[in-house]
């Protein structure tokens, strides 16, 4: 089985972001960047499948600026074989990302494509599903467990009512949720070795995909601040405050 994993470089999830005062976006200069956490779980899932033995190759692809090399190297250090950077400085929409990935899929012909279920910057939760449609493959999103059963996968998904298990025939697209596994921290020798693994850099403009956005972002604004409240001294004061809230609620 050949696996393709798409990874995204994002503002590190521990960073408290700041909206630019002019409303043009979020301050990203000088901010710590790292691999989107959901993508880490996707890479880990691929490496674990390879450790069980039935994987011929793990290929990593990322779309973004030159610095996205860093997240590809992280994935290579975790155990992937080679990387592809589709280089662009433009902010691409999810459908454009999916179209570029679909081109890579037609070149690479992977049996399994793993992605994160969402990226923690734009929180879109689109790309895996779009890629599945563009490549005419079944999808298993929000995966918390993947079991290989011959030419099929049994995937347990985290859904609003709990969990559900579905089977998808390969080739398929799976998006990773956080409870899928615990991503490894690559040991230093693996990090060093990653630097000698093949990493192809290709401009996004060479794929014949229209990169122009469809939507127009009018502005990015900060959410309304909550006004600080008060601390009460006893359980009965707290209970009284709860009671007064409940009594004020309008019946729905």
């Amino acid at each position: 089985m050949k696996i393709l994993v798409a990874v995204k470089r994002v503002v590190d999830h521990n960073v408290r972001i700041r909206v630019r005062p002019d409303g043009t976006g979020v301050e990203t200069t000088g901010v710590r960047m790292s691999m989107n956490p959901f993508c880490k779980h996707a890479v880990e899932a691929a490496v674990q499948l390879a450790e069980k033995g039935d994987v011929s190759e793990i290929v990593i692809v990322s779309i973004g600026p030159k610095q996205s090399n860093d997240v590809i190297l992280t994935a290579l250090a975790m155990g992937a074989r080679r990387g592809i950077l589709i280089e662009t400085d433009a902010a691409l929409e999810t459908l454009t990302i999916a179209k570029l990935l679909a081109k890579v899929v037609s070149e690479e012909q992977p049996d399994l494509i793993l992605l994160g279920k969402q990226a923690v910057d734009d929180d879109s939760n689109h790309v895996g599903q779009m890629l599945a449609a563009l490549t005419n493959r079944p999808q298993a999103t929000f995966a918390s467990q993947i079991v290989v059963k011959g030419a099929e996968l049994e995937v347990t998904r985290e859904v609003d009512y709990g969990r559900e298990t579905i089977s998808v025939p390969l080739p398929a697209v799976v998006t990773a949720d956080l409870r899928l596994n615990t991503p490894r921290n690559a040991a230093l020798p693996m990090v060093m070795k990653a630097r000698s693994k093949p990493l192809a850099v290709r401009p996004a403009t060479e794929f014949g995909v229209d990169l122009a956005p469809r939507l127009r972002t009018e502005k990015i604004s900060p959410p309304t601040e909550r006004v600080p409240g008060k601390t009460v001294g006893s359980v009965s004061d707290f209970a009284a405050a709860v009671a007064s809230e409940v009594n004020e609620m309008e019946a729905l």
Binding site: I17, D123, T217, K219, S221, P222, P223
Partner: peptide, 10 residues
Amino acid sequence: IYAGNALETV
């Protein structure tokens, strides 16, 4: 976007 730390008008 950004876990609700920013709001995008599109």
